[in-house]
């Protein structure tokens, strides 16, 4: 026993905490953006006329949902050198995280597209809207409304999942906790601090989501 919780003991390490938090944020934000783009591609594949393309889309989603992210990260990290590409830890983590998140994004976007009634496309076409205009004025606003909440959940999931990057030597927040903890033997304090960083990030997403949602979706504008 005899362990006293004293935050002061880890003050010297707070400088590196900011860098670590910056990496966590950069990794998560980039992975979210990339996985939305990839996910949109896969969601479109899953609506394709070709059976083969539909199968590829569905298989991608199943593989990503059923394989641990850690294993995917190791594959990306270690496969690079085997085939002659050297990836930095950060890039490997970004690729692995994006590929994995894309599987979930694809499902979210697909559900959003399904929620747009076929009659919406017909009405827009009948009014002479071009394909691009139909997407911009009719389809996208409706998809956005459906995916808004699950998208927020996925953003949080990516932030939490980015902690696994520590396993391939990215110096983000989880890695900070482990390194500082094992040099200072103050694991309780480092845990509390790291947990607070993640809590703040996740709750910021939650609050932002509520605020933006209130602003964007006026009452009554719900899809049937």
């Amino acid at each position: 026993m005899g362990y006293t919780f004293t935050l002061r003991t880890i003050y010297p390490y707070l400088g590196t905490l900011w860098q670590a938090a910056g990496l966590t944020l950069a990794l998560s934000l980039l992975a979210i953006v990339i996985s939305i783009v990839l996910g949109a591609g896969i969601a479109i594949l899953r609506r394709s006329h070709s059976r083969l393309l539909r199968f590829i889309g569905a298989a991608y989603v199943e593989v990503m949902r059923n394989t641990p992210l850690l294993v995917i990260l190791y594959i990306v990290y270690f496969a690079g050198p085997s085939i002659g590409i050297r990836l930095s830890s950060f890039n490997a983590a970004l690729i692995g995280l994006s590929l994995n998140s894309a599987g979930y994004m694809a499902e979210i976007l697909r559900a959003g597209l399904i929620a747009v009634a076929p009659g919406q496309f017909e009405a827009a076409h009948a009014q002479g809207l071009t394909a691009l205009q139909t997407f911009r004025y009719v389809v996208f606003p409706q998809v956005f409304r459906t995916i808004y909440a699950p998208l927020g959940n996925q953003v949080i999931a990516v932030i939490l999942a980015s902690s696994l990057a520590s396993a391939i030597a990215v110096d983000e927040v989880a890695s900070w906790m482990e390194t500082v903890g094992s040099t200072s033997f103050r694991f309780f304090e480092t845990f509390v601090v790291a947990a607070i960083v993640y809590l703040v990030l996740c709750q910021a997403v939650n609050l932002g989501r509520l605020g933006i949602g209130r602003m964007l979706f006026r009452q009554g504008a719900v899809a049937r």
């Binding site: 009634a117 009659g119 919406q120 017909e122 009405a123 827009a124 004025y137 009719v138 606003p141 409706q142 409304r145 504008a221 719900v222 899809a223 049937r224």
Partner: peptide
Amino acid sequence: FQHFNLYPHL
């Protein structure tokens, strides 16, 4: 149309 097909977000 029979089912109106109004844009629900507008």
